[in-house]
C-alpha cells in the first residue's frame, strides 16, 4: 500500500507536482493518466525515492520513503520511462547484478531468475549483450529487473512507449498476469491502455489530480456526453432532422459528406434512461436510409480533460 499525501515538487518556480494525494491499495492496478508534462514521471520518481519531494509524504507499506528509504524501497520494483540498463552487460549478468543490489539470497537466485525470465520471455536472450537487444526486449529486461526481489509494488512508467503493436499487447498481457500478485502503478498517456489493465485511474493535469476514479465510474462520468458515429446513405439534412426528433438526443451534426454518403456525429444526453441506439436504427430504417456503419466513439484524452477540467 502506498499513501501519498500533499505531494509537492518545485522545479525553480514551476511546480511540477502540486499537492497530490492519493492511495494505492494492495493488489490493485492503478493507472496514471495525463498528457506529457502533467507530472506523472515526477510523481513516480518521488514514490520510488529517486527524487525528494519539496513537501508532502510518501509511505510505502507504512515506511516513509525519506525516513526509512531502505525498507520502503525494498517493496518497490521500478521501471523508469528509460529502462536503466547497462549496455555492456549480458542479460543474465545484469539480472544477477540486480539480485546483488536487492540483496536476494544466493539460494533463491536461480529459481527466481528463471521464473522471471520465463515470465517476461527473455530466457532465449539471457546470454546476449543488452546493448544488442531490440527495444521490446530491452523493455522486458527492464520489467524483469523491476521484478527481482519479489517486490509487492511495481511502478511502471510508460512501459509500452515506443513499442510496436504486437509488443504492446505482450506487455499488457504481462502486466495483467503480474497484477495477480502485485500492486501496480502504471502510467500512460493512452487511455485505452489504462482502460485495458487498470482498476482505478488517477488523472493528472498540470501537476494536480484532476480525477481519481475506478474505470466504470470514470466512463459513467464520461458517458454524460457519449458520442456515436454513423455512416448513412441518403439525404443528409433529412437524416439529421429525423434523428433530432428522437428523445434524449442533444446534438446531431454532419461531420463529412461524400456524394450520398454522410458521416453523422450524434451527441447523446446522459439523462436518457434508455439506450437511444435502437430508436436511431428504427427511425432510419423506417425512412429507408441504409445504415453502413454505427459505432460509439471513444472519448479522446483531450475530451476527458475537457470534460473533467472544463
Amino acid at each position: 500500500m502506498i499513501e501519498i499525501n500533499n505531494l509537492v515538487k518545485h522545479y525553480g518556480t514551476k511546480k511540477a507536482v502540486n499537492d497530490i494525494s492519493f492511495t494505492v491499495n494492495d493488489g490493485e492496478v492503478l493507472g496514471f493518466l495525463g498528457p506529457n508534462g502533467a507530472g506523472k514521471t515526477t510523481t513516480m520518481n518521488i514514490i520510488t525515492g529517486y527524487l525528494s519531494s519539496t513537501s508532502g509524504t510518501v509511505k510505502v507499506n507504512g515506511h516513509d520513503i525519506l525516513e526509512e528509504p531502505e525498507l520502503a524501497k525494498k517493496d518497490i520494483g521500478y521501471l523508469p520511462e528509460q529502462p536503466p540498463l547497462y549496455n555492456d552487460m549480458t542479460v543474465i549478468e545484469f539480472l544477477n547484478f540486480m539480485c546483488d543490489l536487492k540483496k536476494v539470497r544466493k539460494a533463491d537466485r536461480k529459481p527466481m531468475l528463471s521464473e522471471i525470465m520465463d515470465m517476461v520471455k527473455i530466457s532465449s536472450v539471457s546470454d546476449r549483450l543488452i546493448g544488442n537487444l531490440s527495444k521490446g526486449y530491452k523493455q522486458r529486461v527492464g520489467i524483469a529487473q523491476a521484478l527481482i526481489g519479489d517486490p509487492k509494488i511495481l511502478i511502471l512508467d510508460e512501459p509500452t512507449v515506443g513499442l510496436d503493436p504486437g509488443q504492446v499487447i505482450e506487455i499488457r498481457k504481462l502486466v495483467k498476469s503480474l497484477s495477480k500478485n502485485h500492486s501496480i502503478v502504471i502510467s500512460s498517456h493512452i487511455l485505452s491502455e489504462i482502460q485495458a489493465v487498470c482498476d482505478r485511474v488517477v488523472i493528472l493535469n498540470h501537476g494536480k489530480v484532476a480525477a481519481i476514479d475506478t474505470i466504470p465510474d470514470l466512463s459513467r462520468r464520461l458517458s454524460g456526453t457519449s458520442k456515436f458515429l454513423l455512416t448513412v446513405r441518403g439525404d443528409g439534412d433529412d437524416i439529421v432532422s429525423k434523428i433530432k426528433m428522437l428523445t434524449s438526443i442533444q446534438d446531431v451534426s454532419i461531420r463529412r459528406s461524400e456524394g450520398e454518403y454522410y458521416e453523422i456525429e450524434i451527441l447523446v444526453s446522459n439523462s436518457a434512461k434508455t439506450d437511444p441506439r435502437e430508436a436511431i436504427f428504427f427511425a432510419l430504417a423506417k425512412a429507408g436510409y441504409p445504415m453502413l456503419e454505427f459505432r460509439s466513439l471513444d472519448p479522446t484524452l483531450e475530451e476527458i480533460f475537457l470534460s473533467i477540467t472544463g
Partner: peptide
C-alpha cells in the same frame, strides 16, 4: 518558504 523548507534544509 515553508513549502520549500525541506529542500532548503537539505
Amino acid at each position: 518558504n515553508t513549502k520549500n523548507k525541506r529542500a532548503m534544509d537539505l
